[in-house]
Design a protein around this nucleic acid. Structure first.
Length: 691
DNA sequence: GGCTTACTAAACAGTA
DNA sequence: GTACTGTTTAGTAAGC
């Protein structure tokens, strides 16, 4: 690549030395060719390192080019001393060439380059030095132009007083012509170079900035005074211009003042249209109509700006745009390369669109088939989706989707359908959304459910169509240890959903409420604090801590009792396995008592505490069922669960009678609702737990 | 209309 | 005293 860069630089240098303004084009084309040196279109997914490398190479090329141009300019400047009052137009052309390129880097643009850190410090220093030297040169040139203009004005005054002499008049007109051409040339070259830099990524034009071509005028080396001078000159000769003499050949591309079009295009300048020293373009009605007619039709033109990728040249009217298009975006290597890049972009977008369309079609088909299917018998409980369709989604686009995709009578609904029912209208719906629950039984949402629309939820403030419980569970299960602190759950919500970056007080409270309310969430404590795990089986059951009941546990009130019945509890609580260890001991005791096969130590050490707790609970349910059948009046203090539930595992609220007295907790442990109603929870409503 | 469920808000207590 | 965490209750809305 370095060799290629060197080659390109050399060609650029030769082009510049030939006095051609197309050097920038060569540089740019070279860069483009470099990007597809193998004859391929530029890769869309260039790696960051490759991109940085290419940018650095381009920056080097620019620096070299600037250096060459400066050398050339210095030579020319030596020939053209500002002190000379030579008014011969022929000598002004090199001056314009000399002024062109380095001036395109305004201080702001230089700062941009600095910020982008594309150039090395040495290169930047060279550029800065060049810039400073050229600033001085520019000032000298400005003085020169001012003097020249003053002389022109003097001559005009003399002509007005002494009568018009055709020869002098012609001379003045010639001077004006040369002056204006020079001005335009400088602007064009500036714009071309700036455009080149922009396309190479060395400059970025901020959206708020003025249009690209105007910037060098405002900030570059050509001050507004020059244009003001020209305005004065042309105003003085307004009457003469109507004579139709040599001014008729004054084809000035005023569009090029504000665009990067070369001087080939021509427009008759309207001196009356100048305002504030800025040249403006005379737009006849015919052109305005043309603009209106075509601006809506031509995809490359809109809002007075050329829409060619990377161009954004300002074209005052459609005619200017057409000229600009034909001249600037003619069939050449650069345009071809840009066209290929655009083709790649379009292909990528089409590919993405096709995928999304396919996905949408599959969703629609699936849901439509489901909705038209005869209502089937209720499916297995754990297969009914708990993922709910947001009200906004269903209401906003009633035709787009069947209304009841998750009704209990619907066939099995993969949970992945939940988040995929987002519509464009629902994307903009923010606010409290009541959810429609198909069943009281929960089915966990999978990672794919959220992952499918992960980016969407991350960026769009759309309330996810999942319950808090589902999201909390997902957050916990996504964690490596399958356990999260409350704050980590908060962070997961804010990280995954843009919606939860607002109204924190609301949803955080909801999370806490859900954590406390749902039996599936198990709070575990260790010496580092408390964290939450999830019992997946319990989650699928979807049971809640019942309301209107006394607190399920009061550690302070019952702690002494607990310790009295189980002295090992304190030690176990302080251990890092505060959850597993007492549970293990209790479980083993219980299983030994009930002749249940022991869990191995390895299984107890499984980090998935939720599954562990679930499995243990299942076993204990059976065990306690058996135990209760044998000794329904067993003493609470002898229950192994007393060491587990009060501190680490939630208990269902107590019956009012049982809740009374300091031993209520122990009583609860003995008559845990789990044990009471787990035996038939699949057949009976959950509420019967508390009856 | 009743029941269930989820959401929200609030109160309260414990803890750091 | 404050903020955070955890629990509980009450009210509301929506779906069944």
């Amino acid at each position: 690549m370095m060799q290629e860069s060197g080659t390109e630089t050399k060609s650029n240098g030769s082009a510049i030395q030939n006095g051609s303004s197309g050097g920038n084009h060569l540089l740019e084309c070279g860069s483009l060719r470099e990007g597809r040196s193998n004859g391929e279109a530029p890769a869309v997914d260039v790696g960051a390192a490759d991109l940085a490398h290419v940018q650095q190479q381009q920056a080097l090329q620019v620096a070299r080019q600037l250096l060459l141009q400066q050398q050339q300019q210095q030579q020319v400047s030596g020939l053209k001393s500002p002190k000379r009052n030579d008014k011969q137009p022929a000598l002004q052309v090199p001056v314009s060439v000399a002024m062109m390129t380095p001036q395109v880097i305004t201080p702001q643009q230089m700062q941009q380059i600095l910020q982008q850190q594309v150039l090395s410090p040495q290169q930047l220093q060279v550029l800065l030095q060049q810039q400073q030297a050229l600033m001085l040169q520019q000032q000298q040139l400005q003085e020169f132009y001012k003097k020249q203009q003053e002389q022109l004005q003097l001559q005009l005054l003399q002509q007005q007083h002494a009568g018009k002499q055709p020869k002098e008049q012609q001379q003045v007109a010639t001077q004006q012509l040369a002056f204006q051409q020079q001005l335009l040339q400088m602007q064009q070259l500036q714009q071309q170079h700036l455009l080149s830099l922009q396309r190479q990524g060395l400059l970025t034009i901020q959206p708020g900035q003025p249009a690209l071509p105007l910037q060098p005028l405002a900030q570059g080396m050509i001050p507004a005074e020059l244009q003001q001078l020209w305005k004065e000159v042309t105003s003085a000769h307004t009457a003469e211009e109507t004579t139709g003499n040599n001014h008729s050949s004054l084809d000035l591309t005023t569009t090029c003042v504000s665009s990067s079009a070369p001087s080939k295009t021509s427009l008759i300048m309207n001196p009356h249209a100048s305002t504030n020293g800025q040249l403006s373009v005379h737009t006849p009605k015919r052109e305005s109509l043309s603009h209106e007619e075509h601006s809506h039709s031509h995809p490359l033109y809109g809002h007075g700006v050329c829409k060619w990728p990377g161009c954004e040249a300002v074209c005052e009217d459609f005619q200017s745009f057409l000229k600009h298009l034909n001249s600037e975006h003619a069939l050449d290597d650069r345009s071809t390369a840009q066209c290929r890049v655009q083709m790649q972009v379009v292909q990528q977008l089409e590919l993405q669109l096709a995928k999304d369309k396919e996905r949408l079609q599959a969703m629609m088909t699936h849901l439509h088939v489901k909705s038209t299917e005869p209502k089937a018998a209720p499916q297995p409980l754990n297969l009914v989706s708990s993922v709910t369709l947001s009200k906004s989604a269903s209401e906003a686009s009633p035709q787009s989707l069947p209304h009841t995709p998750t009704t209990p009578t619907a066939p099995i609904t993969p949970v992945t359908q939940g988040p995929s029912v987002i519509t464009t209208t629902s994307m903009h719906t923010v606010g409290p959304i009541r959810r429609r629950y198909s069943d009281k039984y929960n089915v966990p949402i999978s990672s794919a459910d959220i992952a499918q629309n992960q980016e969407f939820y991350k960026n769009a403030e759309v309330r996810p169509p999942f319950t808090y419980a589902s999201l909390i569970r997902q957050a916990i299960l996504e964690s490596p240890e399958k356990q999260l602190t409350l704050n980590e759950i908060y962070n997961w919500f804010t990280r995954m959903f843009a919606y939860f970056r607002r109204n924190a007080a609301t949803w955080k409270g909801a999370i806490r409420t859900n954590l406390s309310l749902h039996k599936c969430f198990i709070r575990v404590e260790d010496e580092f604090g408390s964290f939450w795990t999830v019992d997946d089986e319990e989650f699928k059951r979807g049971r809640h801590i019942q309301r209107g009941r006394p607190r399920k546990y009061c550690p302070d009130e019952n702690f002494d009792e607990l310790v009295a019945h189980n002295p090992s509890l304190i030690k176990n609580m302080q251990s890092s396995h505060a959850y597993c260890t007492p549970l293990n001991a209790a479980l083993q005791a219980s299983m030994a008592e009930n002749s249940i096969p022991l869990y191995t130590t390895a299984s107890m050490g499984n980090p998935t505490l939720g599954n562990l707790a679930s499995a243990i609970r299942e076993e204990l349910n059976g065990a306690m069922e058996h135990t209760n059948s044998n000794e329904s009046d067993s003493s609470p203090g002898r229950s192994p669960m007393q060491a587990v539930h009060p501190v680490h595992v939630k208990e269902e609220p107590l019956d009012p009678e049982e809740a009374e007295g300091p031993l209520s907790l122990v009583t609860t442990a003995n008559h845990s609702p789990d044990f009471d109603h787990d035996r038939d929870y699949e057949d009976e409503p959950v509420n019967e737990d508390m009856e």
